[in-house]
Computed example of a mutant assay.
Amino acid sequence: MKVLFVGDVTARPGQRVLARHLPDIRGEYDWVIVNGENAAAGKGLDRKSYRLIREAGADLVTLGNHAWDKKQVYELIETEPIIRAANYPPGTPGRGWWVLERGGFRLLVVQVMGRVYMEPLDDPFRTVDRILEEVPHDAAIVEIHAEATSEKYALGFYLDGRVAAVLGTHTHIPTLDAGFLPKGTAIQADVGMTGTYRSIIGGEVESFLGRFLTGRPHPFRSAEGPARFVATELVFEGARVRAISPYQWEEPWRGEGIE
């Protein structure tokens, strides 16, 4: 069994490279999971960006700290295969986990949000404990959407041997640490961003530079430019991952975009 986890699809470049490349490789994977929290103009998910992600071949879309930036997500999250962080307080719309099933095999996908330099949500560690206990599954992937690599690795070691993989998202830069913890759980601190790296984490360079140079808020504008498809491939053997491999594809750039 093979699973592809696609890192944060960001703005039009991310949409474009996903639509170009994922259909070409979709047949190689049993399931494709895509983080789409920045797909709509760099912040949030709307109907148009969600439809593009699904039509490209995603089985499940995950969100993050920009989950609520587009009002259309409130309808989508109640009816579509989309998950937000499971450690939001009770009563939050949507759900924080999903079970993908094929041939009787149940793959549980959970997302939690970190709390270091992030919103003060409920405890992600005990949240995952509860879901693992309550939801029947054969294997589990946990996505942690967080700033701090220390928190991501803390969750990894906490879950080591109990889940197949712990994958980080949010910082938009792929990390070179993909590998295994002592009890067999696969881990990568950040899968990275599917979008243009001719940017500052997907944002226009000039607008982001203004924040650093002046210390004052500046309007966010998403960047345009050549994009990379960035993902992590998991190869399963039963309920365990036997291989974890970062995956990248650079688009041929001709200056066009998605309207």
Rank of each mutant, 00 (worst) to 15 (best):
L107E: 06
N38D: 10
F180T: 10
V73S: 03
D46P: 03
A140L: 06
G14R: 00
W68M: 04
L60K: 01
G184H: 09
G91P: 00
A186R: 00
L159W: 06
E143H: 00
R198S: 15
A85K: 10
P90E: 13
K71I: 15
V17H: 02
T232N: 07
P120Q: 07
F212L: 15
L4P: 00
V9A: 03
W97R: 00
F5C: 09
A67G: 03
E28P: 02
G94A: 07
T232R: 01
H170T: 03
S207Q: 14
A11D: 15
Y158A: 08
Q72C: 03
G36F: 05
E80S: 04
R12C: 10
V163Y: 01
K2F: 09
M193S: 05
A154D: 08
R95Q: 14
L60W: 07
I141N: 02
V205A: 10
D69Y: 13
L18M: 13
V32Y: 02
V3C: 08
A41F: 15
G210M: 08
D190S: 06
P252E: 15
G96H: 02
R228V: 14
T169F: 04
L167Q: 04
P246M: 11
V191F: 03
I144V: 14
G168S: 04
R115V: 15
K2C: 12
P246G: 06
E80M: 06
R54I: 09
T10F: 14
T175N: 08
D8F: 05
Q111I: 07
E237Y: 05
K152C: 13
G114F: 07
